[in-house]
Design a binder for these strands. Structure first.
Length: 439
RNA sequence: GGCCCUAUCGUCUAGCCUGGUCCAGGACGCUAGGUUUUCAUCCUAGAAACCCGGGUUCAAAUCCCGGUAGGGUCACCA
């Protein structure tokens, strides 16, 4: 049995987007679980549009995700071989130099066309079964601009054969290219690889991902603060599902459980909500130091230098889906109260809806100040100092003013945690200020 | 338009090959309730789907046929 080899063959004319990343992942998974090889081939035959920047982005994205390739090569480096294949094709009479009408700028008067035998092509697709296509309408398609400039179909066939690629796992948009490639393989006497055409990842409007809709670089997801484990986990669930009901999977588990045969046929819409949920799950598993490192570029200085930053981080952890959410929290004023005395809206001190008369709220605040003056300042002690009073006068009536006085925000963590983080002096100060504001 | 692919809750999907155990299961989201005020977390409950029409069969989400809908692809791009 020959050993299995798969490849991901992106062209450096665009970023590594989620579609390509998912295709790479499936290729990787299939190769690894079969103890085979996974290679990266940069398809840069289009010299005008290929850039180093995109090539770097593709490699950076794959590396970040942990999708490691065993070998890499560019098609530019295969030029000599392509030329030889082209010559062989012409020699065999399977391709010919064709005189062309120059229709648009850049057109050449002479190109190389494949002599299409126009026989119907049937190929085996692991995901879709047998697929048959007529090739009549393809005509004598162009396979090279000249002997030095092979085009996609020729290069793909030459490279896959030359590098012994056994399984071509690619997006469904490649399915209509397959007959052309098989025709070339047959003319050359090459073995046809086994195909598997993956369902497309769709934008929310059910169309193919495009530059204006979702086809951004994977690196952008990294910048938004998505964890690679989460993105990988979400991606593997797009078009495939493990047998059991557990959806949270590590790369190792994916390699073990993945099955190309059970890949879905229909396209899958990319759902940011679920990605966020999965990311939140992985964020929750981060330990203290991992979490601190994870959010370091998103947290304001004041929090980083805060004496109680560990406690604040713990709170932050359960309020975010991804690191960049912290910036949003900050902009909404849900962070500044940890280090800065908040501005209070006197109408909100008593409560956000059915607030009791302010005389009553003043009394509660005074009682809180007195109780806290004599308390130790751990969360537990604070709660104990205040709890029976709050029970007696209505939790909402007492605890809301306490919480709001400390945070100045309609939404925030509970007042005990807040008070502990602020410390006794600052807590009493803010409570007193709220009390005075009501007079 | 030609060729091709696809069709289960809003979304990702299990089940389909080997018809009955499926008045269709899970997850995200949503709704309601609960957990020491608000927000978040967490817990519990709930609403929510077999595209349509024929056929085969005692029995169809599952098999067959036909529609319909959606998508992909038709470059001297990859």
């Amino acid at each position: 049995m020959t050993s299995i080899k798969t490849r991901i063959a992106p062209s450096p004319t665009g970023y590594l987007h989620v579609g390509t990343a998912r295709t790479a992942l499936f290729n990787y998974l299939f190769a690894k679980q079969n103890k085979g090889e996974f290679v990266l081939r940069i398809e840069d035959t289009d010299k005008e549009r290929s850039t180093k920047e995109f090539e770097d982005d593709i490699k950076e994205g794959l590396s970040w995700l942990g999708i490691e390739w065993d070998h890499t090569h560019t098609q530019q480096a295969e030029m000599e071989h392509h030329k030889k294949v082209l010559e062989e094709l012409i020699e065999k009479g399977a391709a010919y130099v064709s005189q062309e009408e120059v229709k648009k700028e850049g057109d050449r008067p002479e190109v190389i066309r494949f002599k299409n035998p126009k026989t119907p092509i049937t190929f085996k697709d692991i995901i879709r079964g047998e697929v048959t296509m007529e090739t009549e309408s393809l005509g004598d398609f162009v396979i090279a601009k000249d002997m030095e400039s092979p085009l996609y179909h020729l290069a793909v066939v030459a490279d896959d054969a030359n590098h012994n690629v056994t399984h071509v796992i690619r997006g469904e948009d490649g399915i209509s290219n397959t007959p052309r490639q098989i025709l070339i393989q047959q003319a050359l006497g090459y073995k046809t690889p086994i195909y598997a055409h993956l369902p497309l990842i769709l934008a929310p409007d059910k169309t193919k991902l495009s530059k204006r809709h979702g086809a951004v670089s994977i690196i952008e997801y990294k910048k938004m603060g998505y964890l690679k484990e989460a993105l990988l986990n979400y991606l593997v669930l797009l078009g495939w599902h493990p047998k059991g009901e557990e959806e949270i999977l590590s790369l190792e588990e994916m390699i073990k459980l993945f099955s190309l045969e059970s890949v879905q046929k229909g396209g899958a819409i990319f759902d940011t909500e679920k990605l966020n949920w999965i990311n939140r799950h992985y964020v929750g598993n981060l330990n203290e130091s991992e979490f601190e490192k994870y959010i370091q570029n998103y947290v304001p200085e004041e929090i980083i230098n805060h004496s109680k930053k560990e406690a604040i981080y713990e709170l932050l952890k359960e309020r975010i889906d991804k690191a960049s959410d912290i910036q949003e929290l900050h902009e909404n004023g849900e962070l500044s109260y940890y280090y800065k005395e908040p501005a209070l809206d006197t109408d909100l001190i008593g409560g956000n809806k059915k607030a009791p008369p302010k005389e009553e709220t003043i009394r509660h605040l005074e009682a809180l100040i007195e109780a806290l003056n004599n308390a130790e300042f751990t969360k537990e002690d604070i709660k104990n100092a205040v709890w029976s009073y709050a029970e007696e006068h209505g939790r909402g009536n007492v605890l809301w003013p306490m919480r709001y006085s400390l945070s100045g925000a309609p939404k925030s963590p509970d007042p005990f945690t807040l008070a502990e983080i602020l410390g006794k002096e600052e807590t009493i100060k803010r409570l007193t200020k709220a009390c005075n504001a009501l007079q």
